[in-house]
Amino acid sequence: MSEKKRILLVEDEKDLVEVVKIRLEASGYEVLTAADGQQALDKARAQKPDLIILDLMLPRVDGYKVCRMLKFDEKYKHIPVIIFSARAQEADKKLAQEVGAEAYITKPFEPQALLAKIEELLK
């Protein structure tokens, strides 16, 4: 197995970060975390993760903006983004698509579904 894939988990809810991080690490990923939009951008640019799991409702810069900024930047647009949101509206999913997110997973999530999506995007 090659080098561990790195996933940037952007989520402002600490407890959720903790359990999701455990889940991902258990699946063999290296997990970076960011608690707000600005931090997420900084870390994505500095660390260049292989995939980003992005909450929408974030302090400072919201998830859509983070996604849009990364997707407009040639250096980072290849990084797949999974939107990870409590919002389950059609409109939200549509918007996520528009800003270039590769997937949309609503909370509460099925762990298997999340892992399957990650694996699919990292192929």
Partner: peptide, 12 residues
């Protein structure tokens, strides 16, 4: 929406 996040934590 507010219910979803705690539900996620619980479920996970």
């Amino acid at each position: 929406h507010e219910l979803r996040t705690p539900l996620s934590i619980m479920k996970e």
